[in-house]
Design a protein around this nucleic acid. Structure first.
Length: 408
RNA sequence: CGGGCCGUGGUGUAAUGGUAGCACGAGACGUUUGGGACGUUUUAGCCCGAGUUCGAAUCUCGGCGGCCCGACCA
């Protein structure tokens, strides 16, 4: 991608209202654009990050045997009435009447829709277990949108639903999913804490949250830095300074961002929405359900919160919108060739071909935060200067050495 | 939803009741090019409405919008 053609441009100043680092740099760097409070456009750079994260999540979900699909955002009141959630979610859900007076809502989540499909299509134990998921926008009428992409009213989520005939089978898959989630976050460069938590307003059952330690977080968790023990402060009977119940180390507490949440509904939906299938012995059994969510757009912000310095974002290469930022100084024709060769080698390259000062190019490169910066100028001769975004010093290398380094 | 702060060109700001100014951006021409260059020039603004006043960006009221704290929160 030639930066001279990239939509949209970086800004010299951050929006005055941006407080969190992610909000500031994502706006300033041209990753996102705010339409209204809590509602953002993902500009080309930001959408590339979204897609990279989505693909990681997609691969991990597929690895558990789940199938991707896409459900409607526009939903009728009647299925929500079956579970009583048209009323209980009234505050959170966007609800309105269409022109004919029909009560309609925008999806805050998709349990009702998926369970309706499942009950009409699943009749036998032979069709179970089943896991399906989608990646798309959710709408929640939050009282207060916050921190840019951290808490939006329209946001991108991966939501997966699994269906089982026995609690044991459900537990198995649930545990399998915890591992898949850990892999997904780790691949995004994040250290995740699997936290026991309450189910909130959506279920009374227990659940697990996937928390990323960050001062920009809204939750507080009690965790052990020596082992994997962690609990949400809301429900924990422990506090910082207590001994870890698992390994006896001293517990810490910290702000954290909830980047995912999974929970079991058990037979609740079977009761509310009448979903049954026959088991091996010909007996009618409730179809059990569990839900698994990852806030994809929130992850973009979370990664920016964890990986940044005072100049901009430092993207982990697994999610970076491009792998390299090629900078050409003093109108160098060789740069066009290098750009083509990098692209031919399959390296995603943002090529700063703009006719602006060197300082501005460097500042933009730091702000956008691609993993590697390649500079070509009269000073580099037939070599290329390579600098990693997270290092202070660069080095001169031949084109071949650069390719070898980047392909690693 | 309670509390607080705020709304001036695309962005960031100044003007405390009396001529809306500056910087960046964007456009043109020229000179520049290793950490946000320079000259000349052009461009574009007081969120909306009502009120007070000789006169309102400025004061008052209402609306709309944004941010922060809290409450809330798959």
């Amino acid at each position: 991608m030639r930066q001279s053609k990239l939509f949209a441009k970086t800004r010299n100043t951050a929006p005055k209202d941006a407080v969190s680092a992610s909000h500031k740099y994502l706006s300033q760097g041209g990753f996102v654009d705010m339409l209204m409070a809590g509602v953002y456009t993902y500009l080309p750079l930001g959408y590339r990050v979204i897609n990279n994260i989505s693909n990681i999540v997609r691969e991990e979900m597929n690895s558990t045997g789940a199938q991707e699909m896409l459900m409607p955002v526009l939903q009728p009141k009647n299925i929500w009435d079956e579970t009583g959630r048209w009323e209980s979610l009234r505050e959170v859900m966007y609800q309105f009447k269409d022109r004919s007076g029909k009560e309609t809502g925008l999806a805050a989540t998709h349990e009702e829709v998926i369970y309706d499909i499942v009950r009409r299509n699943i009749n036998s134990y032979k069709d179970l277990p089943l896991a399906v998921y989608q990646i798309q926008n959710k709408f929640r009428n939050e009282l207060r949108a916050k921190g840019g992409l951290i808490r939006g009213r329209e946001f991108m989520m991966k939501d997966l639903y699994s269906f089982h005939l026995s609690p044991e089978d459900l537990d198995d898959y649930y545990n399998q999913m915890i591992e898949a989630y850990k892999r997904a976050y780790n691949r995004c460069g994040l250290e995740v804490k699997v936290v026991e938590a309450s189910g909130g307003i959506f279920t009374k059952k227990y659940s697990h949250e996937f928390q990323i330690i960050s001062p920009a977080g809204e939750d507080t968790i009690i965790y052990c830095s020596k082992c994997d023990f962690a609990q949400n402060e809301e429900i924990s009977k422990l506090k910082a300074g207590d001994n870890c119940p698992k390994c006896e180390s001293v517990l810490e507490n910290g702000k954290s961002i909830e980047a995912g949440n999974i929970f079991q509904f058990g037979d609740q939906y079977a009761k509310d929405m009448k979903g049954y299938a026959t088991d091996k012995d010909g007996e009618k059994k409730p179809i059990l359900m569990a839900s698994y969510g990852i806030g994809i757009s929130r992850l973009v912000a979370t990664i920016a919160e964890v990986y940044h310095d005072d100049k901009g974002i430092i993207w982990p290469s697994s999610v970076a919108p491009f792998m390299v930022h090629l900078i050409s100084l003093n109108k160098n024709e060789a740069a066009d060739d290098i750009y083509e060769q990098l692209t031919n080698q399959g390296l995603e390259t943002l090529y700063d071909d703009r006719d602006i000062s060197a300082g501005e190019k460097f500042a933009d490169a730091d702000l956008i935060g691609l993993p590697y910066r390649l500079v070509i100028s009269s000073k580099t001769g037939d070599q290329i200067e390579v600098k990693a975004r997270n290092k202070d010093q660069g080095a001169l290398k031949s084109f071949k050495e650069v390719i070898d380094l980047l392909k690693k």
